[in-house]
C-alpha cells in the first residue's frame, strides 16, 4: 500500500551546509523531518536529503552513515549530488565546475512542464550519465542539472533556496510510488 505524504519521515543530513533550508521546505509540504548527524538518526526514515555545503567537509564527517543510508531513497543537492556521484550513482561530476563565486548564477529552465528557477552556487557539472540514469532537466545552456537513477535523485542547483517546492514534491512522489 502506498504511504501518504503526511506519514513520510524524511531525514536531512545535518553534518554541514544548508540543511535547515531543506527542513523548512519539507515542513511546508507536511512531511515529518529530522536532522541526521549520527548513524542512529537514520532509524525509521523513509528517505534522506543531502544538502548543499562542502562535500569535502561532509565526507570527513559522514563515517558509518554512508553505508547505512545506501538503501534509502536519497535526494542530493549540489554537494549532495557530488556525494551521490562518488558513492551510489552512475554519473560523473566535476566539482566547482564553473569557477569562483563570481561565476555562480541563477537560471530558468523546464522540468515536467514547470518553470524552475535554479540557483547555482559554485556548482558542480554532470559530465556523463550511465545507461540507467534518467536526465530530468537541463538548464538554458543545455547542461544536465537534474538526474534520477532508481531511488536516487541529484540536482546541481539549490531548490531549497527558492520558494518553489516542485523538486521536493517529485522526490516525495518517488518515495511513495516505490513504497
Amino acid at each position: 500500500m502506498q504511504k501518504e505524504v503526511g506519514k513520510l519521515k524524511i531525514g536531512v543530513l545535518a553534518l554541514q551546509g544548508a540543511f535547515f533550508e531543506h527542513v523548512e521546505i519539507l515542513e511546508k509540504l507536511g512531511v515529518q523531518t529530522s536532522e541526521v548527524r549520527t548513524v542512529e538518526d537514520l532509524a525509521g526514515l523513509d528517505g534522506l536529503i543531502i544538502p548543499g555545503g562542502e562535500s569535502t567537509t561532509m565526507n570527513l564527517l559522514i563515517g558509518e552513515i554512508k553505508k547505512v543510508m545506501k538503501k534509502l531513497p536519497i535526494f542530493g543537492t549540489c554537494a549532495g549530488a557530488i556525494i551521490l556521484a562518488q558513492n551510489f550513482m552512475d554519473i560523473e561530476v566535476e566539482r566547482n565546475a564553473y569557477g569562483s563565486q563570481l561565476d555562480s548564477f541563477e537560471d530558468d529552465f523546464q522540468f515536467n512542464g514547470h518553470n524552475i528557477h535554479g540557483i547555482f552556487i559554485r556548482a558542480p557539472k554532470i559530465l556523463k550519465v550511465g545507461d540507467g540514469v534518467e536526465v530530468l532537466a537541463k538548464n538554458s545552456k543545455d547542461e544536465i542539472v537534474l538526474v534520477r537513477e532508481d531511488r536516487y535523485l541529484a540536482s546541481t542547483f539549490h531548490p531549497e533556496l527558492t520558494e518553489d517546492t516542485k523538486i521536493h514534491e517529485y522526490f516525495l512522489d518517488m518515495i511513495i510510488q516505490n513504497s
Binding site: 553534518l15 551546509g17 549540489c78 541563477e106 559554485r122 533556496l161
Partner: peptide, 17 residues
C-alpha cells in the same frame, strides 16, 4: 550573476562549518 540571492546563498552553504 552576482545577485543578493547568490551572495547570501554561498554563506548559507558555510553553515554548520
Amino acid at each position: 550573476k552576482n545577485t543578493t540571492k547568490l551572495k547570501k546563498g554561498l554563506a548559507q552553504m558555510f553553515k554548520g562549518g
